[in-house]
């Protein structure tokens, strides 16, 4: 193995600050609104169910407190679901994948392909209705560094997975 250690001018490195992130599939916005609605509906049902056994929950003032709290929470979650879409995006470079998310608390995660352990494609019941899937990318860095890119058209998710697997394989050959 020949050893080389060329100096790299830091200005010539590819930089993440001028990356344009690709948006997720437009119907993903609908999916996140639907799933948030389902979530809020479940809260409502649980409350009604518990209230069936505990009478006081159906009486003033608890019913009012709940109604207020629930509507505020529901509208917030739905607004976040609609807004959040514009802040999520991914970018694929030759040697790594980036994922951006978060409206208020922003985060960008970068995973080099030569650190990918494996990829998975998942499709929930709501996803299936819209023909979307999510792509999960696992590294050895623990669950907090694993990526999950939701809202990809099924074909595109497969394509991406294929691409990443190829890159990983190519990297292993080198």
């Amino acid at each position: 193995m020949s050893f080389s250690n060329h100096q790299i001018q830091s200005a010539s490195l590819p930089t993440i600050s001028d990356i344009t992130f690709e948006k997720l599939d437009p119907s993903y916005r609908k999916i996140s609104v639907i799933t948030s609605c389902i979530f809020c509906l479940v809260i409502l049902i649980v409350y009604l169910f518990v209230g069936y056994f505990i009478d006081i929950l159906y009486h003033w003032p608890w019913i009012l407190v709940f109604a207020l709290g629930w509507s505020v929470l529901t509208s917030l979650i739905i607004i976040l679901a609609i807004k959040g879409y514009t802040y999520e995006g991914f970018a694929i470079r030759e040697k790594d994948i980036l994922y951006q998310s978060g409206i208020f608390f922003k985060s960008v995660v970068i995973i080099p392909f030569n650190r990918v352990q494996h990829c998975e494609i998942e499709q929930g019941p709501v996803d299936r209705m819209f023909g979307l899937s999510s792509l999960s990318i696992f590294t050895a860095g623990g669950s907090s560094s694993d990526l999950n890119i939701p809202g990809l058209a099924h074909d595109k998710a497969n394509q991406l997975k294929q691409f990443i697997t190829n890159q990983v394989a190519r990297d292993e050959e080198e």
Partner: peptide
């Protein structure tokens, strides 16, 4: 030995051009 890298910004941090940088390794971050 870095496995993945994250740049994280709270609302205050993004307003002030600051961030946390997190390095994930196979043995913790």
């Amino acid at each position: 030995k870095i496995q993945a890298l994250e740049i994280y910004q709270s609302p205050y941090q993004s307003k002030n051009g600051l961030c946390n940088i997190i390095f994930f390794t196979a043995s913790g971050k």
